[in-house]
């Protein structure tokens, strides 16, 4: 499983340019599904047929946050904007990598004070170019954090666990699930970080009976962290509410029942900020009963996100247990 997660987190795939990660995922699920297609926005949709049960959409987003080059100056330095929720304090002294393999260092014009985080307009990227003409990066190119995965005991550290860890859970699910009652539409969505865009169109196209998003959530278990009753290693979280949605009570209950009947540890999640593809899926057409399984994750949207492998494995078990039931809502 770690190798699967390594491949997924280390692959380039920012929001709006998911070609490469889509190819990797396509290769991973090929042969395990009955149909495989890509829609107009670039969502990868895999169908594994069931035995006449419900239509279930399982979504994990394959895009990651990054930065977009908006200007190359005369001397070959790059100015950039945040693509999704990237914050300046995670960038200083950091490296980004472009699709063509070029690596850039983030610099700051001048540090006004070590206590103050500079704003984006004071930052630039240095790829070592000597002029605009010889710069190997152009306006519109997207860089992502450049970090390898590290496994330390049960704890994993990498960029882009948000939401490649969700992708890993769904790939693993396809490997392990045997016969299933339900039609499973496994969707690796695009552009979640830009406003759940891939989920909007893929959910419309599929028109599922039930939707489940698999994504990461924050934890409250680090020193002086803002209060939150979710901790690393205590099991996947079943979402009750986030900033944009309240999970369908019936789906939430069914997930809890699946966990309790199968002795799978789980936590309940009430997230103050942020949301997932589920918020978009829920509002599709006439409304879709939708829930979320969250992988607890520290330091989300930084180059060093941290998850616990046991939570990941238990998320797979939880999904398997949930989908083995005929009734998907209570």
């Amino acid at each position: 499983m770690i190798e699967l997660i390594r491949t997924l987190t280390e692959t380039y795939g920012p929001a709006g340019n998911e070609t490469r990660i889509r190819q990797v995922l396509r290769d991973m699920v090929k042969g395990k599904v009955d149909e495989l297609k890509v829609d107009a926005l670039g969502n990868l949709i895999a169908l594994r047929k069931g035995k006449g049960g419900r239509k279930v959409m399982l979504a994990a987003h394959m895009d990651e946050i990054g930065i977009v080059v908006n200007y190359v100056d005369e001397k070959g330095f790059l100015r950039f904007s945040a693509l999704g929720g990237v914050f300046p304090h995670t960038l200083l002294g950091n490296r980004v990598e472009f699709e063509n393999g070029v690596v850039g260092v983030i610099g700051v014009e001048k540090l006004e004070s070590p206590d103050k985080v500079p704003t984006f307009d004071k930052l630039y990227i240095d790829v070592g170019a000597e002029s605009r003409e010889d710069c190997p990066v152009k306006v519109g190119d997207i860089g992502v954090f450049s970090r390898p995965l590290i496994a330390q005991g049960q704890r994993l550290i990498a960029k882009a666990f948000d939401d490649r860890i969700g992708c890993a859970v769904l790939v693993k699910l396809l490997e392990e699930i045997g016969d299933c009652e339900h039609d499973l539409y496994i969707v690796f969505t695009v552009q979640e970080e830009l406003g759940l865009r891939g989920a909007v169109t893929s959910a419309y196209g599929i028109a599922p009976d039930v939707g489940i998003a698999v994504d990461v959530t924050r934890t409250g278990d680090t020193p002086e962290a803002p209060k939150m009753a979710v901790a690393l290693g205590k099991g996947p979280a079943v979402k009750v509410k986030d900033a944009r949605m309240i999970s369908h009570p019936g789906v939430r209950q069914a997930l809890i029942r699946a966990a309790e009947q199968n002795g799978i540890p789980y936590q309940l999640e009430v997230l103050e900020g942020g949301t997932t593809d589920a918020a978009a899926i829920q509002l599709t057409r006439e409304g879709i009963p939708t829930g979320v399984i969250s992988i607890p994750c520290r330091y989300i949207h930084t180059p060093s996100e941290m998850v616990d492998l046991r939570d990941v494995e238990n998320a797979v078990r939880l999904l398997l247990a949930y989908l083995s039931s005929k009734e998907l809502t209570e």
Binding site: D39, A40, L41, N43, R197, V200, T201, S202, Y204, G205
Partner: peptide, 8 residues
């Protein structure tokens, strides 16, 4: 671009 199944 977000209409129905998505529009290039």
């Amino acid at each position: 671009h977000l209409t129905k199944k998505g529009v290039p």
